[in-house]
Every structure is written in C-alpha cells, then in structure tokens.
Design a binder for these strands. Structure first.
Length: 335
DNA sequence: AATACGTGGCG
DNA sequence: TCGCCAAGTAT
C-alpha cells in the first residue's frame, strides 16, 4: 500500500472523467445524473463537511446504524466536542460513552465504539486504518461501515452497500419494489458492477445513492416525481410492481429487549449506580416519585412495563453479560 | 442462516 | 392507534 496521506476534502461532484476504456454510456449517464443531483440536493451534514475527520466519520457511521439522521445530529456534535480524537474517548471509562450515547438505541454500539477507540489508540498510534481490511478489524465495524469509512473518510473506491443503496439498486436496476430481506451475493456483485471506475466518482456515487434512497427513493411513498434518474428506473418502467414479500415486523412490546431498554435508562440516569434491590417488585412498587436523584422517571417507566421479576432478572443478566452494566456490592452501574 | 439487539417518529 | 422503518453487527 502507498503510505500517502489522503487529504480530507468535502465530498463534491467530480470533474469530468478522463475517458479510457469507458463503461457503457448508459451507466456513465447514470453516474453523471446522480452526481449532479447530489451536488444540488445533498444535505449539509457535519460529517460531510470539509473540516470533518476520519474519526468523526467513523463515529457518525456507527451512530447511524439503524438510526435516523435527525436523532444522531445532536449526539454526534456533543460527542465530537467532548472526544475530538479517539484517544480522548479511550481515556474514559466505557460507561461515559454509554451515557453520552443517550437514547440513540442499541447501546452496545457505544461500548464497541469505545473499544474501537482503544484499539485505534493502542494499536494504530491514534490514527484510523485507511482501508477496509484494517477497519473491519475494529469492534462494531462490519462490511458496510468499513466500506463507508474507506470511501467517505479516506476517499477510497469501496463498494458501499447499505439499506438505502440496496433499495435504490433494487428499483433502478432490478425493477423490484424492495430488496430481499437480507443482503445477497448477487446484490453485492451488482453494486460492485455499478461502481464507477474512477476513485473520486465512486465516492460521489456511493454518497449520492445513499442520499437518493434517504430523500427520494424511500421505502414508503417514494418521491419519483423528484427523482433525477426516474427515466432510467426499471421499477417505474415495469409499472411499479408491489413487493413480493411482506417484511416481518420487529417484535418489541413485552419483550426482554424492551425491559433491557428500561433498565439501561435507569442506569444512565443514575450517576452513581442503583441498588440491585431497586429492581425488585417491592422496591419498584414504592419508588413512585421518590425521585431525588433523577432516576424517578426512568424507574417509573420500568415499573410501567409490568415485567415479571424473572423477566427483569433475565434482561439484567443479558446486560451484565454484554458488559453494558456491572455489579459491585449489590450496586448496579454503567461500566 | 436466523436471531437478538433500542428508540421514537410517521403514515 | 399501531405497524413500519432508520447509514448494521455479532453470534
């Protein structure tokens, strides 16, 4: 690998390609049309700004996993203000990351981001790996995030495949309403085949396809009248056929997962932990509004779930096993 | 390969 | 109201 530094500049529409062995004109047109749309319509997100850092991009990508942009924005801002460099986060207890994570959901992501910061600090001299292979080795970084960071932080040519891009490809090229329930090898090959050869163009293509999926080619009620590539869309050409399967909902009500979430809220609210006995039936029953330390509302929420003691026990055991909670002397706290 | 894992807004 | 959905990962 060439150990050169890749300048971090704003993701912008690329210059015209130097035509060598060029792809079919159709694909080139598609690339150009989407790039033009992206240059015009892309949201002004802080992790896309010219002053962004690779660390900031990684933080954004982890936070954005299964989580809407609007919810991530304020947490990302505060996170970067407090921990501008991986070593800043690595110097803190993991619990601080979990608390700062707030209500973004999937708090194990905060734990893994903290662990990733430790690996970056300890094994990479505080600098992020610049290619997918190195990024993949970091906790919490899978195929999508590795490709996204390689592309958006380092300007690399990587095949980025997220839920937006899968949906855009399924419609635009595949002629289907929705992609398969899980990522297939055929989809990955298709995404690789669609990627511009030119490195800078590939970055824009990846970002633009994601943005199109987020703003226009949405899962429900796509805004096809605003779509810059509607004329090329196989799904529109096919008469907008309906999905061939019905997505199965994510179970939530009454699940252990819901109880985990409520217990996590209690732990986040308690600066110095809570007695394990607080989660017992008798203690929960009397807690009501004895909210001297701010845990009251969170405890009330937990109580409202009316989970049985065995379910609370099971949920707590899961949190302890995952390292999201620790217990010492009968007191539960963040790690 | 299927499943577990949070949260809150929207149609 | 309620199910769907949001820049997935790890096991």
């Amino acid at each position: 690998m060439t150990p050169r530094k890749v300048p971090v500049t704003a993701i912008a529409a690329p210059r015209r390609r130097a035509s060598a062995a060029s792809p079919p004109a159709r694909l080139t047109d598609l690339h150009a049309a989407l790039a033009a749309w992206f240059a015009r319509e892309a949201r002004d997100l802080p992790w896309r700004a010219a002053d962004r850092t690779p660390w900031g991009v990684l933080v954004s990508e982890i936070m954005l996993q299964q989580t809407p942009v609007v919810r991530v924005l304020p947490v990302w801002e505060e996170w970067m203000r407090r921990w501008p460099h991986p070593s800043d986060l690595a110097a803190e207890p993991a619990g601080e990351a979990v608390r700062a994570w707030g209500r973004l959901g999937y708090p194990r992501r905060a734990l893994r981001l903290h662990a990733a910061a430790a690996v970056i600090t300890r094994e990479h001299d505080g600098e992020l790996p610049t290619i997918e292979e190195g990024l993949l080795a970091l906790p919490g970084v899978g195929t999508y995030t590795a490709a996204a960071v390689a592309a958006f932080a380092f300007g690399g040519r990587a095949t980025v495949v997220d839920t937006n891009i899968r949906r855009v490809h399924a419609r635009l090229v595949g002629g289907e309403a929705l992609p398969a329930p899980s990522l297939t090898a055929a989809e990955q090959r298709r995404a690789a085949a669609l990627l511009p050869e030119d490195r800078a163009e590939s970055v824009v293509w990846n970002a633009a396809a994601m943005e199109l999926g987020a703003l226009v080619c949405t899962a429900r009620s796509p805004r096809c009248s605003e779509c810059p590539v509607a004329a090329d869309c196989a799904w529109l050409a096919a008469g907008e056929p309906p999905p061939t399967y019905t997505p199965r909902g994510q179970a939530w009500h009454g699940t252990d997962r819901q109880v985990r979430g409520a217990i996590m809220a209690v732990l986040r609210a308690a600066e110095h932990g809570v007695p394990r006995a607080l989660l017992d039936d008798s203690a929960l029953a009397t807690v009501s509004d004895s909210a001297a330390d701010g845990v009251g509302p969170a405890v009330a929420r937990l109580k409202a779930l009316q989970a049985g003691p065995e379910q609370r026990e099971r949920a707590l055991a899961g949190l302890l096993a995952d390292g999201l909670a620790v217990e010492a002397d009968g007191v539960l706290r963040l790690p």
